[in-house]
Design a protein around this nucleic acid. Structure first.
Lengths: 241, 241
DNA sequence: CAGTGGTCTAGACCACAAG
DNA sequence: TTGTGGTCTAGACCACTGA
């Protein structure tokens, strides 16, 4: 099977149990040895056994119930990990030259639509940016972005000519929380023109809203020509591949 | 800020550090107190401090370097967690009645295309199933599935009339690994007919390949009408929302 | 009420890399 | 060479909950 590298003790125990669950030897509902028994089996302290079972529970492979023990869980909805890269890195990983052009840039007081997109309660200033990302000579992605100037006032002084809005924001507001919504739409005339594709072409759309502790940061809609782009998400029972 | 529930010690420490990183008080590159110092600050043992920093490192918020210490990481590509539910659960969460119809079902020796889709090296038998999932009266999703009979021979005896292939496989082969590819395509005439949509409608497509330790299990292509479906993925700096 | 998981301690030894 | 993280131990107490 898998090669046993010189792993740490709890990694070895973890691997053993994972293998028995994944192979079906321990089916859903099967009771796993108690912490004290595991510790005895592997001749280790209870903390080490606990570490293993805690990790298995966190990754969803087992369920723990006080007084009853730990049981192999019923597999439910798969939650895959979706890597969403920066557009520049994405283009470069294709070995193509990256560039971007700011197509429109407007500061305004938030209108009703803006407030909804950014989940703003009061009227505030926003920056609306339309930007095309290129891979080599061809358009790669259309970016339509709204930035809350209440949260990121520094954006007003930035033209985004040399640095793309996404990259700039990552430096200004690191570690913000985000929610991504992925859907498919047909390109309308405007989008088709900007991306240099046929009107009606299926496009993959990622809408992302981003918050920092200081408030809403940005709302962005990324439109990719469908035949040129795909997202990949992986799922492994143990948590990582 | 956030309400401090009666949390465990390491959760409290974890929250404190996360808050300082997320708020920008500790910018990327900033050095975090050593384990021994943290332990002294919070008047706890070193293991507790270690648990906190280990978890922060695993969630990507900090980088740990021996002899140097731990540092706030540079935020890189966001990896969002994408929940991929079972179709039946998905429909029911919309408060609609679920049903499915098997449209085609064929057993054959794997041809070149089948081998590629399932990553089979030798010729083997496969089951090819086309199935429509309904939400209420309307088609919800088109499922085109290939099952490797070498890995799951029990599938040959199953008609999938009462239980959908996905649900059945989840019971047969729990905890398999999977890779999902998400893209957008225009519905061709065949797909449009099956889903009762206009030809050319943008559709969200999820292609999933699944493995168990015993070998490749299944390859499935799920096609959703784009205007009726979207995937949601969340990202939080601490790992969970 | 007894047994299980949840958490924490106060040590210890080792590997490794920076100075 | 020295300090840091990585790991592990052999205990301990508590809360909860199922029998």
């Amino acid at each position: 099977m898998t090669i046993v590298r010189d792993a740490t003790l709890h990694q070895r125990i973890l691997g053993d149990i994972e293998a028995r669950i994944v192979s079906g030897e321990w089916p859903p509902g099967h009771r796993i040895p108690f912490e004290v028994d595991l510790a005895a089996d592997y001749n280790c302290s209870r903390m080490t056994a606990n570490k293993v079972l805690t990790q298995l529970a966190k990754s969803g492979l087992i369920e723990r119930r006080k007084k009853s023990g730990s049981f192999v869980a019923q597999p439910r909805a798969q939650s895959a990990v979706l890597a969403i890269a920066e557009i520049e890195a994405e283009v470069q990983s294709l070995r193509l030259a990256y560039s971007h052009v700011v197509h429109a840039r407007e500061k305004r007081r938030a209108n009703a639509s803006d407030k909804q997109r950014l989940e703003l309660s009061e009227a505030a200033s926003v920056l609306d940016i339309t930007c095309i990302h290129h891979a080599g000579p061809a358009p790669f992605c259309l970016e339509e972005r709204l930035i809350s100037l209440a949260t990121v006032p520094e954006a007003e002084a930035e033209t985004f000519a040399k640095i793309s809005p996404g990259t700039w924001l990552l430096k200004q507001v690191p570690w913000s929380a985000a929610e991504n919504r992925i859907s498919a739409v047909s390109a309308d005339a405007s989008v088709a023109g900007l991306l240099d594709i046929e009107k009606g072409t299926a496009c993959l759309v990622i809408e992302r809203r981003t918050w920092s502790p200081a408030g809403p940061v940005t709302s962005v809609r990324l439109t990719y020509p469908g035949d040129r782009h795909a997202l990949v998400a992986k799922f492994a029972p143990g948590g990582e591949g």
